[in-house]
Amino acid sequence: MPQFDLYQVDAFTSAPFGGNPAAVVPLDAWLPDETLQRIAEENNLSETAYFVRKQDGYELRWFTPAVEVDLCGHATLASAYVLFEVLGAQDDVLRFSTRSGELRVSRADGLLAMDFPAKQPVAEEIAPALLQALGLPGAQALYRTDDYLVVIEDEALIDGLTPDFAALAAFDVRGVAVTAPSAKFDFVSRWFGPRVGVNEDPVTGSAHTSLAPYWAQRLGKRVLTAQQGGARKGQLRCEVPDNGRVVISGQAALYLRGSIYL
Protein backbone atom coordinates (compact mmCIF):
# COMPACT_ATOMS: atom_id res chain seq x y z
CA MET A 1 0.00 0.00 0.00
CA PRO A 2 1.60 3.34 -1.06
CA GLN A 3 2.31 5.61 1.89
CA PHE A 4 3.14 9.32 1.92
CA ASP A 5 4.17 11.69 4.69
CA LEU A 6 1.80 14.51 5.58
CA TYR A 7 2.47 17.57 7.73
CA GLN A 8 -0.07 20.13 8.90
CA VAL A 9 1.52 23.50 9.56
CA ASP A 10 -0.05 26.68 10.92
CA ALA A 11 1.39 29.52 8.85
CA PHE A 12 1.77 33.18 9.86
CA THR A 13 1.76 32.38 13.57
CA SER A 14 4.37 31.50 16.17
CA ALA A 15 2.25 28.79 17.85
CA PRO A 16 -0.37 26.20 16.85
CA PHE A 17 -4.06 27.19 16.62
CA GLY A 18 -3.27 30.56 15.05
CA GLY A 19 -2.60 31.72 11.51
CA ASN A 20 -3.69 29.57 8.60
CA PRO A 21 -3.36 25.78 8.50
CA ALA A 22 -2.00 24.09 5.39
CA ALA A 23 -1.24 20.46 4.60
CA VAL A 24 2.16 19.70 3.08
CA VAL A 25 2.88 16.44 1.25
CA PRO A 26 6.47 15.83 0.03
CA LEU A 27 6.62 13.56 -3.03
CA ASP A 28 9.39 11.75 -4.88
CA ALA A 29 7.42 12.01 -8.13
CA TRP A 30 4.08 13.49 -9.14
CA LEU A 31 0.92 11.52 -8.51
CA PRO A 32 -1.99 11.83 -10.97
CA ASP A 33 -3.77 15.17 -10.75
CA GLU A 34 -6.99 13.44 -9.74
CA THR A 35 -5.21 11.86 -6.77
CA LEU A 36 -3.70 15.20 -5.72
CA GLN A 37 -7.17 16.75 -5.83
CA ARG A 38 -8.76 13.90 -3.88
CA ILE A 39 -6.14 14.17 -1.14
CA ALA A 40 -6.79 17.92 -0.88
CA GLU A 41 -10.52 17.26 -0.70
CA GLU A 42 -9.97 14.68 2.03
CA ASN A 43 -7.70 17.02 4.01
CA ASN A 44 -10.45 19.67 3.81
CA LEU A 45 -8.07 22.55 4.50
CA SER A 46 -7.99 25.70 2.42
CA GLU A 47 -4.77 24.47 0.77
CA THR A 48 -2.76 21.29 0.40
CA ALA A 49 0.75 21.80 -1.01
CA TYR A 50 2.83 19.18 -2.81
CA PHE A 51 6.48 19.47 -3.76
CA VAL A 52 8.95 17.34 -5.73
CA ARG A 53 12.72 17.86 -5.67
CA LYS A 54 14.10 18.88 -9.07
CA GLN A 55 17.83 19.58 -9.53
CA ASP A 56 18.60 22.75 -7.54
CA GLY A 57 15.02 23.46 -6.45
CA TYR A 58 11.50 22.11 -6.08
CA GLU A 59 8.35 21.95 -8.13
CA LEU A 60 5.47 23.18 -5.95
CA ARG A 61 1.72 22.93 -6.51
CA TRP A 62 -1.28 23.96 -4.40
CA PHE A 63 -4.81 22.56 -4.26
CA THR A 64 -7.92 23.75 -2.44
CA PRO A 65 -10.57 21.09 -1.76
CA ALA A 66 -12.08 22.08 -5.12
CA VAL A 67 -9.36 23.27 -7.56
CA GLU A 68 -5.66 23.72 -8.21
CA VAL A 69 -4.64 27.37 -7.78
CA ASP A 70 -1.94 29.53 -9.37
CA LEU A 71 -0.49 30.96 -6.16
CA CYS A 72 -0.77 30.33 -2.43
CA GLY A 73 1.31 32.15 0.13
CA HIS A 74 0.55 30.37 3.38
CA ALA A 75 1.04 26.89 1.89
CA THR A 76 4.35 28.06 0.39
CA LEU A 77 5.39 29.25 3.84
CA ALA A 78 4.28 25.92 5.30
CA SER A 79 6.24 23.99 2.65
CA ALA A 80 9.38 26.02 3.37
CA TYR A 81 8.93 25.41 7.10
CA VAL A 82 8.75 21.63 6.52
CA LEU A 83 11.86 21.70 4.33
CA PHE A 84 13.91 23.89 6.67
CA GLU A 85 12.74 22.78 10.11
CA VAL A 86 11.60 19.16 9.65
CA LEU A 87 13.50 17.76 6.68
CA GLY A 88 16.71 19.71 7.37
CA ALA A 89 17.19 21.47 4.04
CA GLN A 90 20.57 23.21 4.02
CA ASP A 91 19.79 25.62 1.18
CA ASP A 92 20.26 29.32 1.91
CA VAL A 93 17.32 29.99 -0.38
CA LEU A 94 14.60 27.55 -1.38
CA ARG A 95 13.60 27.89 -5.04
CA PHE A 96 10.14 26.75 -6.00
CA SER A 97 9.02 26.35 -9.62
CA THR A 98 5.29 27.09 -9.75
CA ARG A 99 2.45 28.15 -12.04
CA SER A 100 3.30 31.72 -10.95
CA GLY A 101 6.96 31.43 -11.91
CA GLU A 102 9.90 30.96 -9.56
CA LEU A 103 9.22 31.73 -5.90
CA ARG A 104 12.02 32.03 -3.37
CA VAL A 105 11.92 31.57 0.39
CA SER A 106 14.76 32.37 2.77
CA ARG A 107 15.27 32.68 6.53
CA ALA A 108 15.71 36.21 7.87
CA ASP A 109 15.47 37.61 11.41
CA GLY A 110 13.57 34.60 12.73
CA LEU A 111 11.03 34.76 9.89
CA LEU A 112 10.53 32.91 6.65
CA ALA A 113 10.61 35.47 3.83
CA MET A 114 8.82 34.72 0.56
CA ASP A 115 9.73 36.64 -2.60
CA PHE A 116 6.61 36.90 -4.79
CA PRO A 117 5.66 38.90 -7.89
CA ALA A 118 3.73 42.07 -7.01
CA LYS A 119 0.31 42.78 -8.48
CA GLN A 120 -0.65 46.42 -8.85
CA PRO A 121 -4.35 46.94 -8.10
CA VAL A 122 -6.43 48.79 -10.69
CA ALA A 123 -9.30 50.99 -9.53
CA GLU A 124 -12.84 50.02 -10.50
CA GLU A 125 -16.26 51.50 -9.87
CA ILE A 126 -17.75 50.23 -6.61
CA ALA A 127 -20.45 47.66 -7.33
CA PRO A 128 -23.45 47.95 -4.96
CA ALA A 129 -24.13 44.23 -5.35
CA LEU A 130 -20.64 43.46 -4.06
CA LEU A 131 -21.15 45.61 -0.97
CA GLN A 132 -24.51 43.96 -0.41
CA ALA A 133 -22.93 40.49 -0.63
CA LEU A 134 -20.32 41.55 1.94
CA GLY A 135 -22.88 43.20 4.22
CA LEU A 136 -21.05 46.52 4.05
CA PRO A 137 -22.86 49.87 4.17
CA GLY A 138 -20.23 51.42 1.92
CA ALA A 139 -16.59 51.47 0.87
CA GLN A 140 -13.96 54.07 0.08
CA ALA A 141 -12.66 52.34 -3.04
CA LEU A 142 -12.62 49.11 -5.05
CA TYR A 143 -9.58 47.71 -6.84
CA ARG A 144 -8.97 44.58 -8.87
CA THR A 145 -6.12 42.20 -9.58
CA ASP A 146 -7.05 38.51 -9.58
CA ASP A 147 -8.97 39.48 -6.40
CA TYR A 148 -11.24 42.36 -5.57
CA LEU A 149 -9.78 44.70 -2.93
CA VAL A 150 -12.52 46.52 -1.04
CA VAL A 151 -11.09 49.42 0.97
CA ILE A 152 -12.95 50.67 4.04
CA GLU A 153 -11.83 53.10 6.73
CA ASP A 154 -13.23 51.52 9.91
CA GLU A 155 -11.22 48.48 11.01
CA ALA A 156 -13.93 47.66 13.58
CA LEU A 157 -16.14 46.53 10.69
CA ILE A 158 -13.63 43.88 9.64
CA ASP A 159 -14.28 41.45 12.50
CA GLY A 160 -18.05 41.70 12.12
CA LEU A 161 -18.24 40.78 8.43
CA THR A 162 -20.70 37.96 7.65
CA PRO A 163 -20.76 37.73 3.85
CA ASP A 164 -23.34 36.00 1.68
CA PHE A 165 -20.96 33.46 0.17
CA ALA A 166 -23.35 32.33 -2.55
CA ALA A 167 -23.67 35.93 -3.72
CA LEU A 168 -19.88 36.46 -3.56
CA ALA A 169 -19.29 33.37 -5.69
CA ALA A 170 -21.12 35.05 -8.56
CA PHE A 171 -18.31 37.60 -9.04
CA ASP A 172 -15.70 36.63 -11.61
CA VAL A 173 -12.63 36.98 -9.39
CA ARG A 174 -10.53 34.52 -7.43
CA GLY A 175 -11.53 36.09 -4.11
CA VAL A 176 -12.54 39.26 -2.29
CA ALA A 177 -10.30 41.02 0.23
CA VAL A 178 -11.75 43.64 2.56
CA THR A 179 -9.06 45.86 4.06
CA ALA A 180 -8.77 48.85 6.38
CA PRO A 181 -6.08 50.93 8.12
CA SER A 182 -5.32 49.77 11.64
CA ALA A 183 -4.27 51.30 14.94
CA LYS A 184 -1.95 48.38 15.81
CA PHE A 185 -0.80 47.33 12.33
CA ASP A 186 -0.39 49.25 9.11
CA PHE A 187 -3.46 47.48 7.75
CA VAL A 188 -5.83 44.61 8.45
CA SER A 189 -7.90 42.46 6.12
CA ARG A 190 -10.11 39.45 5.58
CA TRP A 191 -10.27 37.34 2.43
CA PHE A 192 -13.20 35.36 1.04
CA GLY A 193 -12.92 32.88 -1.85
CA PRO A 194 -16.11 30.84 -2.30
CA ARG A 195 -15.50 30.72 -6.04
CA VAL A 196 -12.39 28.56 -5.44
CA GLY A 197 -13.97 26.46 -2.68
CA VAL A 198 -12.70 28.48 0.31
CA ASN A 199 -15.40 30.59 1.95
CA GLU A 200 -12.83 32.33 4.15
CA ASP A 201 -9.08 31.90 4.26
CA PRO A 202 -7.71 33.05 7.63
CA VAL A 203 -4.39 34.40 6.28
CA THR A 204 -3.85 34.67 2.53
CA GLY A 205 -0.24 35.36 1.62
CA SER A 206 -1.03 35.67 -2.09
CA ALA A 207 -3.62 38.39 -1.43
CA HIS A 208 -0.82 40.50 0.05
CA THR A 209 0.88 40.62 -3.35
CA SER A 210 -1.92 43.10 -4.10
CA LEU A 211 -2.66 44.47 -0.63
CA ALA A 212 0.95 45.39 0.16
CA PRO A 213 1.52 47.48 -3.01
CA TYR A 214 -1.74 49.35 -2.37
CA TRP A 215 -0.91 50.18 1.25
CA ALA A 216 2.75 50.91 0.50
CA GLN A 217 1.68 53.54 -2.00
CA ARG A 218 -1.07 54.95 0.21
CA LEU A 219 1.04 55.12 3.37
CA GLY A 220 4.34 56.00 1.70
CA LYS A 221 6.07 53.02 3.35
CA ARG A 222 8.10 50.18 1.90
CA VAL A 223 7.89 47.95 4.99
CA LEU A 224 4.47 47.25 6.47
CA THR A 225 2.93 45.15 9.23
CA ALA A 226 -0.38 43.43 8.62
CA GLN A 227 -2.92 41.19 10.28
CA GLN A 228 -5.54 39.10 8.52
CA GLY A 229 -8.44 37.06 9.77
CA GLY A 230 -11.71 36.98 11.64
CA ALA A 231 -12.02 34.61 14.60
CA ARG A 232 -8.63 33.16 13.64
CA LYS A 233 -5.86 35.63 12.83
CA GLY A 234 -2.28 35.70 11.62
CA GLN A 235 0.42 38.32 11.25
CA LEU A 236 2.60 39.24 8.28
CA ARG A 237 5.49 41.54 7.46
CA CYS A 238 5.44 42.92 3.94
CA GLU A 239 8.23 44.68 2.08
CA VAL A 240 7.63 46.35 -1.27
CA PRO A 241 10.98 47.07 -2.98
CA ASP A 242 11.08 48.97 -6.25
CA ASN A 243 11.52 45.87 -8.41
CA GLY A 244 8.02 44.56 -9.06
CA ARG A 245 8.21 42.08 -6.20
CA VAL A 246 6.73 41.74 -2.70
CA VAL A 247 8.56 40.05 0.18
CA ILE A 248 6.02 38.51 2.54
CA SER A 249 7.39 37.19 5.83
CA GLY A 250 5.98 35.28 8.77
CA GLN A 251 6.45 32.49 11.25
CA ALA A 252 5.01 28.97 11.23
CA ALA A 253 4.32 26.15 13.69
CA LEU A 254 4.06 22.40 13.14
CA TYR A 255 0.72 21.04 14.37
CA LEU A 256 0.57 17.49 13.01
CA ARG A 257 2.59 14.87 11.20
CA GLY A 258 1.19 11.64 9.85
CA SER A 259 0.87 9.30 6.89
CA ILE A 260 -1.44 9.00 3.91
CA TYR A 261 -2.31 5.48 2.76
CA LEU A 262 -3.51 5.07 -0.83
Rank of each mutant, 00 (worst) to 15 (best):
R195C: 02
L45M: 09
A231P: 09
D147A: 05
L71D: 00
L131W: 09
G234V: 00
R38C: 08
R174S: 12
Y214C: 01
F185V: 02
L236H: 09
Y261T: 15
A89T: 01
T145W: 03
E239W: 04
Y214E: 09
P26G: 04
H74S: 08
P241C: 11
F116V: 02
D92N: 14
P65T: 06
L77Q: 06
V240T: 12
D115M: 07
E200W: 02
P32E: 12
A89Y: 00
Y261F: 14
W30C: 01
Q227F: 06
V151A: 11
I39M: 14
A15E: 13
L256F: 15
G138W: 05
M1K: 14
W215C: 04
R257M: 12
C238Q: 12
A66W: 05
Y58R: 00
V122A: 13
G234L: 01
Y7M: 08
H74A: 05
Q235F: 14
V24T: 00
E34D: 14
S189V: 02
V93N: 04
P241W: 01
A169H: 05
I152Q: 06
A108E: 15
L77P: 02
C72N: 06
V176K: 10
Y50Q: 11
I39P: 04
P121N: 05
P2W: 10
L262Y: 12
S79T: 15
G88S: 08
A207Y: 00
V188R: 12
G250S: 09
E125I: 10
F187C: 11
L31R: 08
S189Y: 02
Q132F: 06
N44T: 03
G57Q: 00
K119Y: 04
F171T: 01
G220C: 05
G193I: 06
A80H: 08
N243P: 12
Y261H: 14
P181K: 04
V196S: 05
A49C: 13
L36Y: 06
T204K: 01
T13V: 14
L262R: 10
L130Y: 03
D33P: 04
G244V: 10
D115K: 08
W62Q: 07
P121F: 04
R218K: 15
L27S: 04
L130G: 01
P121T: 02
A113M: 11
T64H: 03
P241G: 09
F4G: 06
L130N: 01
T76Q: 04
Q228N: 11
K54H: 05
P194Q: 07
V122C: 08
A170V: 09
A169N: 10
A252S: 07
M1A: 15
D147S: 10
S79I: 07
V9Y: 07
R144C: 08
D28A: 13
V86T: 12
S206Y: 01
G160Y: 00
V69G: 03
A78I: 02
L31H: 04
A127S: 14
D242E: 15
L6F: 13
V24F: 00
I248K: 01
A180C: 11
D147I: 02
L142R: 10
A66N: 08
H74C: 05
A15N: 10
W215P: 06
L27E: 13
R38Q: 15
A133Y: 11
V150G: 10
G160E: 10
G250E: 05
F185C: 03
W62G: 06
Q227L: 06
D33M: 10
A177L: 11
K184A: 14
